[in-house]
Amino acid sequence: MVIAPEKQFINSPTDPMLPQPYRIERVRRETHDVFTLELRPANGTPVMQFAPGQFNMLYVFGTGESAISISGDPNDTNRLIHTVRAVGTVTNAMQKLKRGDCIGVRGPFGTPWPIVEAEGSDVVIVTGGIGLAPLRPVIYHVLANREKYGRFALLFGARSPRDLLFARELEQWRGHFDFNVEVTLDTASSDWRGNVGVVTTLIPRTQFDARHTVAMICGPEVMMRFTVQELMKRGLTTDQIFVTMERNMKCAVGFCGHCQYGPHFVCKDGPVFPFDRIAGLFGKREI
Protein backbone atom coordinates (compact mmCIF):
# COMPACT_ATOMS: atom_id res chain seq x y z
CA MET A 1 0.00 0.00 0.00
CA VAL A 2 1.59 3.20 -1.17
CA ILE A 3 0.25 6.67 -0.57
CA ALA A 4 2.05 9.28 -2.63
CA PRO A 5 3.78 11.48 -0.06
CA GLU A 6 2.72 14.71 -1.72
CA LYS A 7 -0.94 14.00 -1.04
CA GLN A 8 -2.32 16.45 1.49
CA PHE A 9 -5.17 15.37 3.68
CA ILE A 10 -6.58 18.39 5.40
CA ASN A 11 -9.74 19.24 7.28
CA SER A 12 -11.24 15.78 6.84
CA PRO A 13 -14.76 15.50 8.25
CA THR A 14 -15.27 12.98 11.07
CA ASP A 15 -18.04 11.05 9.30
CA PRO A 16 -17.52 11.81 5.63
CA MET A 17 -20.61 9.90 4.49
CA LEU A 18 -23.10 11.67 6.75
CA PRO A 19 -24.43 15.13 5.88
CA GLN A 20 -24.66 17.66 8.71
CA PRO A 21 -27.74 19.87 8.77
CA TYR A 22 -27.07 23.55 8.05
CA ARG A 23 -29.63 26.33 8.00
CA ILE A 24 -29.79 28.93 5.25
CA GLU A 25 -29.24 32.36 6.80
CA ARG A 26 -29.34 34.26 3.58
CA VAL A 27 -29.77 33.73 -0.16
CA ARG A 28 -28.08 36.27 -2.39
CA ARG A 29 -28.85 36.39 -6.09
CA GLU A 30 -25.58 37.00 -7.95
CA THR A 31 -26.65 36.74 -11.60
CA HIS A 32 -29.63 35.36 -13.49
CA ASP A 33 -28.45 31.77 -12.86
CA VAL A 34 -26.00 32.05 -9.96
CA PHE A 35 -26.83 32.45 -6.28
CA THR A 36 -24.93 32.42 -3.00
CA LEU A 37 -26.02 30.60 0.14
CA GLU A 38 -24.89 31.67 3.60
CA LEU A 39 -25.15 28.72 5.97
CA ARG A 40 -24.81 28.02 9.67
CA PRO A 41 -24.93 24.66 11.43
CA ALA A 42 -28.53 23.93 12.41
CA ASN A 43 -27.45 22.23 15.63
CA GLY A 44 -25.33 25.08 16.98
CA THR A 45 -21.98 23.40 16.41
CA PRO A 46 -19.09 25.53 15.09
CA VAL A 47 -18.89 26.30 11.37
CA MET A 48 -16.51 23.91 9.62
CA GLN A 49 -12.97 25.07 8.90
CA PHE A 50 -11.84 24.85 5.30
CA ALA A 51 -8.90 25.76 3.09
CA PRO A 52 -9.42 27.85 -0.08
CA GLY A 53 -10.18 25.46 -2.95
CA GLN A 54 -12.01 22.82 -0.89
CA PHE A 55 -15.59 21.86 -1.62
CA ASN A 56 -18.63 20.41 0.11
CA MET A 57 -21.34 18.03 -0.98
CA LEU A 58 -24.59 19.94 -0.56
CA TYR A 59 -27.74 17.87 -0.11
CA VAL A 60 -31.21 19.10 -0.98
CA PHE A 61 -33.67 17.02 1.01
CA GLY A 62 -35.06 14.20 -1.11
CA THR A 63 -33.52 15.49 -4.35
CA GLY A 64 -29.84 14.71 -4.12
CA GLU A 65 -26.34 16.00 -3.71
CA SER A 66 -24.03 18.22 -5.67
CA ALA A 67 -20.34 19.09 -5.24
CA ILE A 68 -20.05 22.83 -4.63
CA SER A 69 -16.86 24.72 -3.87
CA ILE A 70 -16.71 26.97 -0.84
CA SER A 71 -16.68 30.62 -1.91
CA GLY A 72 -16.45 32.43 1.42
CA ASP A 73 -13.68 33.86 3.54
CA PRO A 74 -11.65 31.09 5.21
CA ASN A 75 -11.28 33.33 8.27
CA ASP A 76 -15.01 33.86 8.68
CA THR A 77 -15.97 31.52 11.50
CA ASN A 78 -19.61 32.60 11.51
CA ARG A 79 -20.87 31.46 8.15
CA LEU A 80 -20.24 28.87 5.49
CA ILE A 81 -20.64 30.34 2.03
CA HIS A 82 -21.34 28.56 -1.24
CA THR A 83 -21.89 30.10 -4.64
CA VAL A 84 -23.91 27.87 -6.96
CA ARG A 85 -24.83 27.95 -10.62
CA ALA A 86 -28.22 26.42 -11.30
CA VAL A 87 -27.50 23.92 -14.07
CA GLY A 88 -28.92 20.56 -12.99
CA THR A 89 -31.67 18.91 -10.98
CA VAL A 90 -30.06 19.41 -7.59
CA THR A 91 -28.80 22.96 -8.14
CA ASN A 92 -32.14 24.01 -9.61
CA ALA A 93 -33.89 22.62 -6.52
CA MET A 94 -31.32 24.42 -4.36
CA GLN A 95 -32.17 27.64 -6.11
CA LYS A 96 -35.73 27.42 -4.75
CA LEU A 97 -34.63 27.20 -1.12
CA LYS A 98 -35.24 30.17 1.14
CA ARG A 99 -33.86 31.70 4.28
CA GLY A 100 -34.57 29.33 7.19
CA ASP A 101 -34.61 26.17 5.06
CA CYS A 102 -32.25 23.34 5.89
CA ILE A 103 -29.63 21.77 3.71
CA GLY A 104 -27.25 18.84 4.30
CA VAL A 105 -23.51 19.48 4.13
CA ARG A 106 -20.73 16.89 3.85
CA GLY A 107 -17.15 18.03 3.80
CA PRO A 108 -14.90 19.78 3.39
CA PHE A 109 -13.20 17.69 0.75
CA GLY A 110 -10.35 18.02 -1.68
CA THR A 111 -7.01 19.71 -2.09
CA PRO A 112 -6.48 23.44 -1.50
CA TRP A 113 -5.01 26.17 -3.65
CA PRO A 114 -1.28 26.62 -2.93
CA ILE A 115 -1.66 29.78 -0.85
CA VAL A 116 1.21 28.87 1.47
CA GLU A 117 3.54 27.79 -1.32
CA ALA A 118 2.77 31.05 -3.17
CA GLU A 119 4.02 33.26 -0.35
CA GLY A 120 6.82 35.48 -1.62
CA SER A 121 5.68 35.09 -5.25
CA ASP A 122 3.49 37.04 -7.60
CA VAL A 123 0.01 35.52 -7.74
CA VAL A 124 -1.98 35.48 -10.97
CA ILE A 125 -5.56 34.21 -10.87
CA VAL A 126 -7.20 33.42 -14.20
CA THR A 127 -10.86 32.45 -14.03
CA GLY A 128 -13.94 32.30 -16.15
CA GLY A 129 -17.63 32.24 -15.31
CA ILE A 130 -18.55 30.44 -12.09
CA GLY A 131 -14.81 29.60 -11.81
CA LEU A 132 -14.36 32.80 -9.83
CA ALA A 133 -16.29 31.28 -6.88
CA PRO A 134 -13.70 28.68 -5.80
CA LEU A 135 -10.97 31.33 -6.07
CA ARG A 136 -12.71 34.01 -4.02
CA PRO A 137 -11.35 32.48 -0.76
CA VAL A 138 -7.85 32.90 -2.20
CA ILE A 139 -8.55 36.55 -2.98
CA TYR A 140 -9.77 37.12 0.58
CA HIS A 141 -6.72 35.40 1.95
CA VAL A 142 -4.18 37.26 -0.18
CA LEU A 143 -5.80 40.63 0.49
CA ALA A 144 -5.76 39.89 4.22
CA ASN A 145 -2.10 38.89 4.04
CA ARG A 146 -1.04 41.26 1.29
CA GLU A 147 2.51 41.74 2.62
CA LYS A 148 3.27 38.03 2.14
CA TYR A 149 2.77 38.13 -1.63
CA GLY A 150 4.28 39.99 -4.57
CA ARG A 151 2.19 41.37 -7.39
CA PHE A 152 -1.41 40.18 -7.37
CA ALA A 153 -3.60 39.99 -10.46
CA LEU A 154 -7.10 38.70 -11.12
CA LEU A 155 -8.02 38.08 -14.75
CA PHE A 156 -11.69 37.24 -15.01
CA GLY A 157 -13.69 36.34 -18.09
CA ALA A 158 -17.47 36.19 -18.32
CA ARG A 159 -20.04 35.83 -21.04
CA SER A 160 -21.80 39.19 -20.87
CA PRO A 161 -22.38 42.01 -18.39
CA ARG A 162 -25.33 40.16 -16.86
CA ASP A 163 -23.06 37.19 -16.09
CA LEU A 164 -20.61 39.21 -14.01
CA LEU A 165 -20.23 37.33 -10.77
CA PHE A 166 -19.54 39.30 -7.57
CA ALA A 167 -19.83 42.54 -9.55
CA ARG A 168 -19.86 44.78 -6.49
CA GLU A 169 -16.81 43.09 -5.00
CA LEU A 170 -14.97 43.28 -8.33
CA GLU A 171 -15.47 47.05 -8.17
CA GLN A 172 -14.12 47.12 -4.61
CA TRP A 173 -11.13 45.00 -5.52
CA ARG A 174 -10.32 47.25 -8.46
CA GLY A 175 -10.03 50.07 -5.95
CA HIS A 176 -7.02 48.43 -4.30
CA PHE A 177 -3.84 50.05 -5.58
CA ASP A 178 -1.93 46.77 -5.19
CA PHE A 179 -4.47 44.45 -6.82
CA ASN A 180 -4.63 44.35 -10.60
CA VAL A 181 -8.17 43.34 -11.51
CA GLU A 182 -9.00 42.90 -15.20
CA VAL A 183 -12.41 41.80 -16.39
CA THR A 184 -13.20 40.77 -19.94
CA LEU A 185 -16.45 39.75 -21.58
CA ASP A 186 -17.27 37.67 -24.62
CA THR A 187 -19.77 40.28 -25.77
CA ALA A 188 -20.87 43.67 -24.50
CA SER A 189 -22.69 46.72 -25.69
CA SER A 190 -20.72 49.93 -26.10
CA ASP A 191 -21.49 51.25 -22.63
CA TRP A 192 -19.18 48.61 -21.10
CA ARG A 193 -15.95 50.22 -19.91
CA GLY A 194 -13.88 47.06 -19.48
CA ASN A 195 -12.32 44.62 -21.91
CA VAL A 196 -13.95 42.49 -24.58
CA GLY A 197 -12.31 39.26 -25.71
CA VAL A 198 -11.35 35.93 -24.18
CA VAL A 199 -9.58 35.91 -20.86
CA THR A 200 -6.36 34.60 -22.41
CA THR A 201 -5.88 37.94 -24.20
CA LEU A 202 -5.41 39.60 -20.81
CA ILE A 203 -2.34 37.53 -19.96
CA PRO A 204 0.17 39.30 -22.26
CA ARG A 205 -1.02 42.63 -20.82
CA THR A 206 -0.45 41.61 -17.19
CA GLN A 207 2.66 42.42 -15.18
CA PHE A 208 4.30 39.57 -13.26
CA ASP A 209 7.72 38.06 -12.85
CA ALA A 210 7.45 34.70 -14.60
CA ARG A 211 10.27 33.20 -12.52
CA HIS A 212 8.48 33.97 -9.26
CA THR A 213 4.82 33.56 -10.05
CA VAL A 214 2.13 31.10 -9.02
CA ALA A 215 -0.84 30.96 -11.37
CA MET A 216 -4.22 29.57 -10.28
CA ILE A 217 -6.76 28.77 -12.98
CA CYS A 218 -10.40 27.77 -12.73
CA GLY A 219 -12.85 27.67 -15.60
CA PRO A 220 -14.13 25.43 -18.37
CA GLU A 221 -11.51 22.90 -19.49
CA VAL A 222 -10.98 24.47 -22.91
CA MET A 223 -10.44 27.88 -21.33
CA MET A 224 -7.88 26.37 -18.95
CA ARG A 225 -6.10 24.64 -21.84
CA PHE A 226 -5.49 27.90 -23.67
CA THR A 227 -4.73 29.77 -20.45
CA VAL A 228 -1.98 27.29 -19.62
CA GLN A 229 -0.49 27.76 -23.11
CA GLU A 230 -0.56 31.52 -22.77
CA LEU A 231 1.08 31.42 -19.33
CA MET A 232 3.78 29.11 -20.63
CA LYS A 233 4.44 31.56 -23.46
CA ARG A 234 5.12 34.07 -20.73
CA GLY A 235 7.73 31.71 -19.26
CA LEU A 236 5.85 29.92 -16.48
CA THR A 237 6.67 26.25 -15.99
CA THR A 238 4.04 23.55 -15.40
CA ASP A 239 4.82 23.35 -11.69
CA GLN A 240 3.95 27.04 -11.24
CA ILE A 241 0.47 26.57 -12.70
CA PHE A 242 -2.46 25.15 -10.71
CA VAL A 243 -5.78 24.15 -12.23
CA THR A 244 -9.05 22.71 -10.92
CA MET A 245 -10.62 19.72 -12.56
CA GLU A 246 -14.31 18.94 -12.55
CA ARG A 247 -15.76 15.45 -12.86
CA ASN A 248 -18.93 13.65 -11.84
CA MET A 249 -18.84 13.08 -8.07
CA LYS A 250 -21.00 10.88 -5.92
CA CYS A 251 -19.14 10.06 -2.72
CA ALA A 252 -16.34 12.68 -2.53
CA VAL A 253 -14.16 10.25 -0.56
CA GLY A 254 -12.60 8.10 -3.29
CA PHE A 255 -14.98 5.13 -3.01
CA CYS A 256 -17.45 5.58 -5.85
CA GLY A 257 -14.92 5.83 -8.69
CA HIS A 258 -16.91 8.36 -10.72
CA CYS A 259 -14.45 11.25 -10.60
CA GLN A 260 -11.42 9.32 -11.80
CA TYR A 261 -9.13 11.27 -14.09
CA GLY A 262 -6.38 8.90 -15.17
CA PRO A 263 -4.77 7.80 -11.90
CA HIS A 264 -6.34 10.66 -9.94
CA PHE A 265 -9.51 10.80 -7.93
CA VAL A 266 -10.59 14.41 -8.47
CA CYS A 267 -12.43 14.37 -5.12
CA LYS A 268 -9.40 13.65 -2.97
CA ASP A 269 -6.32 14.09 -5.19
CA GLY A 270 -7.92 17.28 -6.55
CA PRO A 271 -9.86 19.32 -7.41
CA VAL A 272 -6.77 21.56 -7.37
CA PHE A 273 -3.85 20.01 -9.22
CA PRO A 274 -0.39 21.35 -9.96
CA PHE A 275 -0.52 21.30 -13.74
CA ASP A 276 2.61 19.15 -14.04
CA ARG A 277 0.73 16.28 -12.37
CA ILE A 278 -1.97 16.15 -15.04
CA ALA A 279 -0.19 17.68 -18.03
CA GLY A 280 0.01 14.27 -19.76
CA LEU A 281 -3.76 13.79 -19.54
CA PHE A 282 -4.95 17.33 -20.08
CA GLY A 283 -5.21 17.35 -23.86
CA LYS A 284 -6.41 13.73 -24.12
CA ARG A 285 -10.00 13.12 -25.03
CA GLU A 286 -12.61 11.34 -22.90
CA ILE A 287 -10.25 10.56 -20.04
Binding site: V87, G128, G197, V222
Partner: peptide
Protein backbone atom coordinates in the same frame (compact mmCIF):
# COMPACT_ATOMS: atom_id res chain seq x y z
CA UNK B 1 -3.34 34.53 -35.81
CA UNK B 2 -3.73 35.56 -32.17
CA UNK B 3 -6.90 37.50 -32.94
CA UNK B 4 -8.32 34.60 -34.92
CA UNK B 5 -7.62 32.19 -32.05
CA UNK B 6 -9.22 34.56 -29.57
CA UNK B 7 -12.22 34.97 -31.85
CA UNK B 8 -12.65 31.22 -32.17
CA UNK B 9 -12.51 30.82 -28.40
CA UNK B 10 -15.12 33.56 -28.08
CA UNK B 11 -17.31 31.65 -30.54
CA UNK B 12 -17.15 28.54 -28.32
CA UNK B 13 -19.22 30.36 -25.72
CA UNK B 14 -17.42 28.36 -23.02
CA UNK B 15 -19.40 29.88 -20.16
CA UNK B 16 -22.75 29.17 -21.80
CA UNK B 17 -25.20 26.66 -20.34
CA UNK B 18 -24.91 23.29 -22.08
CA UNK B 19 -27.95 21.65 -20.56
Amino acid sequence: AERLLATRLQLLDVYGNRS
